[in-house]
Amino acid sequence: MSEIPTDLQYTAEHEWVASGDPVTVGITAHAADALGDVVYLELPEVGDAVTAGAVCGEIESTKSVSELFSPVDGTVVEVNGAAVDDPAMVNADPYGAGWLIKVSVTSSGPMLSAEEYATLVGG
């Protein structure tokens, strides 16, 4: 059972969201484990508008590829360039150094609590 921090919110598509302004978005340890070693991140650019539930990027491993769904409506204000340069950070520290984007939120999408997400992934 992979780690699911209780202070974060989650989506059914395996993103986590740290509240604040802007919010920080990443993928869960469960998603990172399922992908295997991440080798390529395609993320939106600073200034891009993102829409809750819509694809805004891709996370590619040797074995497979997963789309990144924006959990919120808003504007991208920061992209984790260090993780783009070294995508292994997503596997090594999915809730920390492996964060993906920061978004200034205009409207939030549907979110799950840590407990609800744990149920979703079979916890």
């Binding site: 295997g36 070693d37 080798v39 491993s61 040797t62 074995k63 292994a88």
Partner: peptide, 9 residues
């Protein structure tokens, strides 16, 4: 076994 740790490693 799909992988033991890192498939890249």
């Amino acid at each position: 076994p799909l992988r033991y740790g890192s498939d890249l490693a």
